[in-house]
Design a protein around this nucleic acid. Structure first.
Lengths: 119, 119
DNA sequence: TTTAATAGTTTCCTAAAGGAAATTAGTATC
DNA sequence: GATACTAATTTCCTTTAGGAAACTATTAAA
């Protein structure tokens, strides 16, 4: 019988696991990446514009997700003093840094579908 | 009053949204990326080895997630005919293509933590 | 004055994710 | 014969995610 001693994980490794957790908690769920991707394409958009483009999202969900993304400094929310009030959402500089990651996610997903289906 | 006509999303855009969905469904959850990341570092590993390294995972969860990853051709499961049975898990070639993506996720997460905390 | 658009919030419900603890079954050591 | 290690599976439970529908409040057009 072999007793396997466990080396404790290195600090670097623990940091990396935490980084994965941070990123995935932010991006997990059905809508968040779609919201960010839509804003990447569309620039500044209003609530109803987002709601229409993200076909099928419930207003509660959109509202909640936007709040969470704002808390994390990925988007800004600006209330315009127009006649019927309008609210504009756009990505922050920090939010735009998700561009590369989203491209990777898309590329991997496209390739994965090929891999799974045709073999 | 302006009526905003909606152009239907382009085929390319629909494909991209589907690719995001595919990738995120596969990687979402508390443990899957950690399992893949661990196998990327550790090469071939046994069930109990994984369980010890992924500090805190319930055996049921590990078992379920491994099955799901195997179904998606990201890992292989090999039963060894040893005295107490051993089972080895390792990444497929396809599974290893997640390397880049995971690096991006880690890098973004590290940077995000700086961005949020110190400002 | 009814209708519609603005941007949400509230309530209620279902489904999925995930954890804890016990169990299984084969083999091997004490 | 009791204990322990292998790799799970089973049962039960709580938490979280997310959807549907109704509602609020303001403004403006028909």
């Amino acid at each position: 019988m072999k007793i396997q001693l466990q080396e404790p994980l290195s600090k670097e490794c623990i940091q990396q696991l935490r980084a994965i957790k941070d990123t995935m908690e932010l991006l997990s769920g059905k809508w968040k990446i779609q919201i960010i991707g839509t804003l990447l394409r569309g620039g500044t958009m209003r609530f109803m514009e987002l709601k229409r483009t993200l076909n099928g999202i419930a207003p509660k969900k959109l509202s909640n997700d936007l709040q969470e993304l704002e808390l994390n400094k990925l988007i800004t929310r600006t209330v315009k003093d127009t006649k019927p009030i309008t609210v504009e959402y756009s990505l922050t500089k920090h939010g735009k840094t998700l561009d590369n990651l989203i491209v990777e996610i898309i590329d991997w997903g496209l390739n994965h579908r090929k891999e799974i289906i045709q073999k």
